[in-house]
């Protein structure tokens, strides 16, 4: 009798498993383009083997490198020359504050970015200098010395000023937040959405955000999507390979390569999980107890069944 039941269960389980495999893992391999990640190695970019000098780097970044003409660096008390609204009008996109850059982005990526932004960002299909379409960030042509050495110095300086600990939220705001809103995290493209006492101020802020978004739309072609719940809308593998190289998943997209280091990406992912899947910690805490309950329930039910069927 028992053997018969197990045999039937086996048949049910096997058919269910085949069905599941077909409509889930197998179907997904057929529906989505497979992209191999390289875990933020950026192997297509040039290697810079020079040892950077922080002091020289500081002089270059704050001076001849001309970074501070557009970028703020709050870590060294340098304010951005323009506010977000003015900057987005001037450049199409708001240049980031560089305080955390050395902590979030890959060293290799930063070096290549300074030398040739459109190439490092993988937006050469949009910005082709030969056709007169310049990337808003000019390439660094050298400050008179060994260019590779100067670049290494600047990267070394950025790394030296980056905070030891960057919170997931800050990582997200610096890496993604200037283009992507996150309404569940109460973030818009201008930063944390403030709460105002008067409706006039609320609407004024809303208008400022909308105006910023219009400029961004003109620059990007469309408004970059809100990322509140993207962690559940895309697979982890997709997000990782997309952030690593947007073109690999979506050819022709105007989204630039972000250039995060592996640790930087983990930070961003942690924030996306906070806003998109906030129940994860509770789920993991309660799950084992619920399963234990059902297990005990089943054992007791089995004993009841045995005693009931004893004389039948």
């Amino acid at each position: 009798m028992m053997k018969n039941e197990l045999k039937i269960l086996g048949v049910v389980v096997v058919f269910t498993a085949i069905l599941y495999w077909g409509v889930e893992p197998f179907a997904h391999t057929q529906m989505h383009k497979h992209v191999d990640g390289e875990h933020f190695a950026y192997s297509d970019l040039k290697e810079n083997t020079k040892q950077g000098n922080v002091e020289n780097g500081k002089t270059l970044v704050m001076g001849a490198g001309a970074c501070t003409g557009c970028h703020g660096i709050e870590a060294v008390a340098h304010k951005a020359p323009m506010d977000a609204a003015t900057a987005v009008s001037a450049y199409g996109v708001n240049p980031p504050d560089l305080s955390t850059a050395g902590g979030l982005y890959s060293e290799k990526f930063l070096a290549n970015l300074i030398e040739n932004p459109a190439h490092a960002l993988k937006v050469e299909h949009k910005f082709d200098a030969a056709k007169g379409k310049m990337h808003p960030m000019p390439a660094f042509y050298g400050a008179g010395g060994d260019k590779a050495q100067e670049i290494a110095d600047m990267v070394a300086f950025l790394k030296s000023i980056a905070p030891k600990e960057i919170s997931p939220k800050d990582a997200y705001m610096d890496a993604c937040g200037r283009c992507h809103a996150n309404r569940y995290g109460k973030l818009d493209q201008l930063g944390q959405t403030p709460t105002f006492k008067s409706e006039t101020d609320t609407l004024k802020h809303k208008v400022a955000v909308l105006e910023y978004q219009d400029k961004l739309k003109a620059y990007m072609g469309k408004l970059p999507p809100d990322l509140s719940i993207i962690i559940r809308a895309r697979s982890e593998h997709f997000l990782e390979t997309f952030v690593e190289n947007p073109q690999s998943q979506l050819e022709g997209t105007s989204m630039p390569r972000v250039g995060l280091s592996a640790q930087g990406f983990e930070k961003v992912k942690a924030y996306l999980t906070q806003t998109g899947d906030p129940s994860k910690p509770a789920r993991e805490a309660i799950g084992p107890w619920v399963l234990l309950f059902t297990l005990v329930f089943t054992v007791l039910a089995y004993l009841w069944k045995k005693s009931m069927w004893k004389d039948h």
């Binding site: 399963l291 059902t294 329930f297 089943t298 054992v299 039910a301 009841w304 009931m308 069927w309």
Partner: peptide, 13 residues
Amino acid sequence: LSKDVFVLGVYLI
């Protein structure tokens, strides 16, 4: 019912 409840238990796991 006793057998139903046992099967239900396995299902709930």
